[in-house]
């Protein structure tokens, strides 16, 4: 794949950054394009979203004594 595509590392870093702030139009488009073609990075992106949902439940988990 040539320079036209972002690498998996670039895509993963952008997926992570997108959880903090909206990406610019170029990055957003390039990331979407990469994710459409790359199952690995799609898995990565879903994993970190899952971990966010889990993390938000930590206080509950601690409350129930599930530590």
């Amino acid at each position: 794949m040539g320079k036209l595509m972002y690498s998996c590392e670039q895509a993963a870093r952008l997926s992570s950054r997108a959880m903090e702030e909206p990406l610019g139009p170029v990055d957003r488009t390039m990331l979407r394009l990469h994710l459409m073609m790359c199952a690995n990075c799609t898995n990565f992106s879903r994993q970190i979203e899952f971990l966010r949902r889990a993390s938000r439940k930590v206080p509950e988990a601690i409350d129930r004594g599930k530590t």
């Binding site: 690498s7 879903r46 994993q47 439940k57």
Partner: peptide, 23 residues
């Protein structure tokens, strides 16, 4: 360390499914 020289995954992320019941 998770990526090779061309930025490819060395150990690609797997599909976790949607394991909300894990909570």
């Amino acid at each position: 360390g998770a990526f090779g020289e061309r930025g490819q995954w060395i150990d690609p992320p797997s599909n976790w499914g949607l394991p909300e019941e894990a909570f």
